[in-house]
């Protein structure tokens, strides 16, 4: 059946909100189908010069053309949606690090894209003089109280201060210093 592998890609990415494994096999199958159909389409059009607009051949070439177009659309939509999610990850994680669990799900080009995107964003942030990924809403207080929920030991913070973050201790620290650690799940914000 036509476009089977291509539509599987789209279904796969619809099923989850995170980034699924890069489906190399299905993309190759879809591209292969495009190439095979293109050759056949070309042959039909070349061989039947005068009769190609007859319904007998027209339905064939129309179908092949639509299938090629459809395959292309599915693969592009799949790749585009993945890039969108990779960008979202960069913004929500607030750093340019790719954890191994995520890295193995991306293709080589996507890893390259992530590091280039990260570089652009970091450059921009440095030029503007503000990290745009931090504090999308204005904070009420500069200091927050936090509880340590993952043993970290001695940690040097952004502002240069050194604190010992032992399990289950609470600290009163600068918001900008600890917001990253909270979103990573090492600390808990006490309100």
């Amino acid at each position: 059946m036509f476009t089977k592998s291509a539509i599987e890609l789209v279904k796969e990415i619809r099923q989850t909100d995170s980034i699924p494994h890069y489906n190399d096999t299905n993309i190759k199958l879809a591209i292969n189908e495009i190439n095979v159909l293109y050759e056949e389409l070309l042959q039909v059009l070349m061989a039947n010069g005068n009769e190609k607009s007859q319904p007998y051949y027209l339905s064939n070439s129309m179908t092949y053309f639509s299938v090629i177009y459809r395959d292309k659309r599915c693969v592009l939509a799949y790749l585009n949606e993945r890039l969108k999610r990779i960008k979202e990850y960069r913004w929500s994680s607030g750093n340019g690090l790719l954890p191994d669990q995520l890295k193995e799900k991306l293709s080589q080009d996507e890893i390259q894209f992530f590091s280039d995107y990260d570089k652009n964003l970091t450059d921009y942030n440095i030029k503007v003089g503000l990290d745009l990924t931090v504090d999308p809403q204005p904070p009420k207080d500069l200091y927050v109280e936090v509880r340590v929920i993952k043993e970290l030991g001695q940690v040097v913070l952004n502002s240069g201060a050194t604190v010992t973050l032992n399990l289950n201790t609470t600290h009163f620290l600068k918001r900008s210093d600890v917001s990253n650690l909270i979103s990573q799940g090492s600390l808990e914000h006490i309100v």
Binding site: S18, E88, Y89, S92, S93, G94, N95, L97, P99, D100, Q101, L102, V144, K150, E151, L152, G153, Q154, V155, V156, L157, N158, R175, D177, S179, N180, L181, I182, S183, Q184, G185, S186, E188, H189
Partner: peptide, 25 residues
Amino acid sequence: IERNPNIIFPVASRSSSVNNSINSN
């Protein structure tokens, strides 16, 4: 400030997690 569920954070060993968090800051 909530924990961000999107962040998959490598917690292989204690020392490495500390290092990473510092790098990320």
